[in-house]
Simulated scan of single mutants.
Amino acid sequence: MSDPGGLRIGYIGLGNMGAPMAQRLLGRPGGLTVLDTRPEAVAPFVEAGATAATDTAELAAACDLICVTVLDDAQVRDVVAGTGGLLSTARPGTVIAVHSTISDTTATELAAQCAEAGVDLVDAPVSGGAPGARNGTLAVMVGATDEAFAKVAEPFGHFAEIVIHAGPVGSGTRMKLARNLLHFISFTAATEAQRLAEAAGIDITELGKVVRHTDAITGGAGAIMWRDNTSQLGAADSWFPIFSHVRDLGEKDLSLALDLGERLGVELPLATRALAGLGVGLGVGTGSTAQAHASEEHA
């Protein structure tokens, strides 16, 4: 198993994400064994040269690296440690990679259980959705030992553009949860923006076009995520003038949006929270616009 390129890979779960990820592993030197509860999901892989396993235990006995993409924590626990699960036949040195987004505590608990059998479990959730899986452009966030990460980095590179070693087991999931926190808060903010635009008589489908266009240019929220910590910045720090400028622009626009919302009778709780916390979150402190708004609120 010193040559990651020669690992025999097993893949469990050939759904919307698992199937395109597994497809990009076809043709690797070590070969591919697949398993899914639906025969119609397995058939195209067999036709393309993969081997079909009849159950989890059979797959584990034949493979060096096993990728798991199932629905939730309960299914992951069952596949890994349930009756007839992977641990029933996996050989010492085997790596089990869980791509499902699960609790970080599930990952660490299962990793400890696997370690007793000499098996490495790594949590390796992905970001980029089915299009990223099909195109091989996913981001994979891996919680693993250095040794286990060295084994999975090359195979993961077949379906991912970025493979990040986030830290020890559990870290991949924690990174994914932070990433998805931003994702779904931004969705909530988008619904708030739509309510404001609709109340103002704006065609929100046209607003959506503008958002998608400009986010593709500016990078969206990721454009400010360059620092290696979240401490407050000193005035001499090179980031201070940059983020102060971002804060001032943001506070101005948020204040104007809140004023429009007040006139239209539209509540904007996320915008209110953003105005109060933007500068502090950027590490440059609250700006004059937010301070003035806070004074008016308490007047």
Results as ranks from 00 to 15, higher is better:
residue 179 R to A: 14
residue 228 D to S: 03
residue 160 A to C: 04
residue 153 A to L: 08
residue 157 G to H: 02
residue 195 R to I: 02
residue 208 G to A: 12
residue 215 D to V: 00
residue 215 D to P: 00
residue 212 R to V: 09
residue 230 T to C: 14
residue 178 A to I: 08
residue 226 W to F: 06
residue 226 W to S: 15
residue 169 V to D: 06
residue 189 A to Q: 02
residue 199 A to E: 04
residue 171 S to L: 02
residue 225 M to I: 04
residue 199 A to H: 07
residue 163 V to D: 01
residue 201 G to C: 02
residue 170 G to D: 14
residue 172 G to C: 09
residue 157 G to W: 01
residue 171 S to E: 06
residue 211 V to A: 08
residue 230 T to N: 15
residue 188 T to R: 11
residue 202 I to M: 04
residue 177 L to Q: 13
residue 206 E to A: 14
residue 167 G to K: 03
residue 183 H to P: 05
residue 211 V to Y: 01
residue 219 G to K: 04
residue 185 I to S: 08
residue 209 K to M: 08
residue 227 R to I: 08
residue 168 P to Q: 05
residue 223 A to P: 04
residue 185 I to A: 07
residue 173 T to M: 10
residue 163 V to P: 02
residue 196 L to N: 05
residue 164 I to A: 15
residue 168 P to L: 06
residue 228 D to Y: 03
residue 158 H to E: 14
residue 150 A to K: 02
residue 199 A to Y: 06
residue 204 I to S: 09
residue 154 E to M: 10
residue 190 A to T: 13
residue 161 E to T: 09
residue 162 I to K: 10
residue 213 H to N: 02
residue 203 D to R: 04
residue 226 W to N: 14
residue 209 K to C: 10
residue 173 T to W: 08
residue 157 G to K: 02
residue 164 I to N: 13
residue 161 E to D: 15
residue 193 A to W: 01
residue 220 G to Q: 12
residue 190 A to Q: 13
residue 152 V to L: 06
residue 154 E to L: 08
